[in-house]
Amino acid sequence: MQLIPHADQIPVHWSWFQVLLLLTFLIHIILVNFILGGSVLTLIDVIRGKTISKASSGIPTLIALTINFGVPPLLFIQVLYGQFFYSSSVIMAVPWILIIPVLIVAYYGAYYFVYKINSKTVLAKTGLFISTLILLVIAFLYVNNITLMLHPQDWGKYFRSTGGMNLNFSEPTLWPRYLHFIVASIAVAGIGKALFAYFDKKSDKELRNQEINSGLKIFSYATLVQIAVGVWFLLVLPGKITWMFLGRNGLATILLGIAVLLLIPTLIYSFRQNFRYTISGILLILILMILIRDLLRKFYLGEVFRLSDLEISGKYGSLILFLGAFIIGIASVYYMIRLITSSKKQ
């Protein structure tokens, strides 16, 4: 525990950052699910020789947005948990920094695939394959870092390789957590596929329904698998934490309970191919999962750190700058979308 660095002062109350972190992370992770799950599904389609979903062509654009929405959670996690996050990042520095170049490759791979989507060349397929593989690896590295930052007691492994060639293989939840994420990505990508078709008013109605149903089907089966993975994940958590979610902590138990209860109707609606109810259900579940994930982090770190430990300088001036910019940003985006919808083709 002596390794945990001192935390720096934060300008305003931590709850601001907490809310911003969870909110932006929710958007980010949904986008991540779309691109990761979407790539996997597209790859499966390509391998099986099926027609590629029109939704697949949106992947590069979604990567742009995913990266963009990854910035604020990356920022706010550093604000709130920097001393943990930086330490674990340095411990696995080499794989961590490799994310950047390989992500660039994956991104260009995705663009290449989309530009050649109709020609289906071997090179295009290879591009997709490499992109998908890279995204899977990046997700794995993220799970490593996010779990390693929660285990200061394991940081001693740094001294065995100060060159940053470490991963967190000693972490018992590593694989179930990773799998939990991959399966969720496929499920949410199923929803994404349906969503794309739902808004794709230009396409043939028949085709759209077909796509929506196929998306919901993917979601349903993936979610069934997810139930098993989720139980596994819950059980390999440290006993103390498992019990937190099974009664010892009121909030944790209630959140998990509601999520599980919500899952039943959501699955029923998805099997019945009711898109609107399914998507509402899954959105609520995702919000709950984000909250549960955050609680899990707090349980892990509870003994060594609480957000209330952070010193606050109370300088609110720059918050106003951000809020002002935020409003201008939202207004601008709204205006730009209005321009698209109101604009006629020349």
Binding site: P5, D8, Q9, I10, P11, F17, L20, N68, F69, V71, P72, L75, F76, Q78, V79, G82, Q83, F85, Y86, S87, S89, V90, A93, W96, I97, G164, S318, L319, L321, F322, A325, F326, I328, G329, S332, V333
Partner: peptide, 28 residues
């Protein structure tokens, strides 16, 4: 953050809303 976590942390904590503002502009 890998090479100089202390410096990064210092910049992040002092200018967090500057960075957040920059993100808004980046998004736009």
């Amino acid at each position: 953050s890998l090479v100089n976590p202390a410096g990064t942390s210092s910049l992040i904590h002092n200018f967090v809303f500057g960075w957040a503002t920059e993100w808004v502009f980046f998004t736009g």
